[in-house]
């Protein structure tokens, strides 16, 4: 059986979008394309930010068929990896559910199975989660209010790659920041299996109050289709023969 690649966008933000199309709509579109959108809302630990403004966080993830969580800065690391893993399980469970419906009829889903069989199905889901390939595009809000959260974000992302690289399946991570200078998003680091290189290149902050979350997600979607991705998925230790043809 050929194992597929799970595609995720991980959006890390601290507030509402205020420019461009509705992020939830774009997230729904991404989900249609097989890209899950997960959202983490980061709160400052000392002063209380308006959690109501973070309602959007949940909305985007829901229409993006992903997972959302709102956290305080210091627990970001653990959250980033939990959210990523949960979203993987959720997606895979969705796929398995689909299969179950085809085999057992439209009314059958995982939750409808008696606990004994459910256990066996979950084992399959777990196996898939461990062995499938994963692509995560991290989309970091670098608007002014995020400034003192960015070091933590960086740490959390390195930590994420530590977690994900312990899996059997392969991983690719890319980091983009928004709002970009000229486009909606700017590349911070290209697709790579490890994120330890991030330390040097984490973005300069964009001042100003615009947060074009919708357009950012839309642009991020296109980054999955790029040729660079295909190339980067070839083993790094193997000589890259195809490259000669480019």
């Amino acid at each position: 059986m050929k194992k597929g690649t799970l595609k995720q966008i991980l959006l890390i933000t601290d507030g509402c979008s205020n420019k461009g199309e509705d992020p939830s709509a774009v997230a729904a579109l991404a989900a249609q394309q097989g890209i899950t959108v997960n959202v983490i809302g980061v709160l400052e630990d000392d002063r209380s930010e308006d959690p109501m403004g973070l309602q959007e966080v949940e909305d985007i993830a829901m229409s993006g068929e992903g997972v959302s969580q709102i956290v305080y800065k210091q627990s970001l690391s653990q959250t980033v990896q939990t959210v990523t893993k949960q979203a993987m399980t959720q997606t895979l469970q969705g796929v398995v559910n689909q299969e179950l419906k085809q085999i057992l009829g439209s009314k059958q889903s995982l939750e409808e199975l008696p606990p004994e069989q459910r256990g066996e199905v979950m084992e399959v889901v777990e196996d898939l989660g461990e062995t499938c390939d994963l692509e995560v595009l991290v989309l970091v809000d670098t608007s002014a209010s995020m400034s003192n959260k960015l070091p933590t974000v960086r740490e959390a992302l390195i930590d994420l790659s530590v977690s994900m690289n312990a899996r059997i399946g392969r991983n690719r991570f890319a980091i983009y920041s928004f709002p970009g200078k000229k486009k909606a998003i700017d590349k911070v680091s290209d697709w790579a299996s490890k994120l330890d290189s991030v330390s040097s290149v984490f973005p300069k902050l964009t001042s100003g109050g615009i947060t074009p979350t919708g357009p950012a997600i839309k642009d991020a979607m296109y980054e999955f289709g790029k040729k660079s991705l295909k190339r980067s998925f070839m083993r790094e230790d193997e000589p890259n023969i195809e490259e000669a043809g480019y």
Partner: peptide, 24 residues
Amino acid sequence: IGRSIKEYTEFFDRGYWNMGTRKA
């Protein structure tokens, strides 16, 4: 064994201390 650790707590996790992987 051989998979990635499912759940951990930072203080007790060697990955957090930069002292190893999160491989089981």
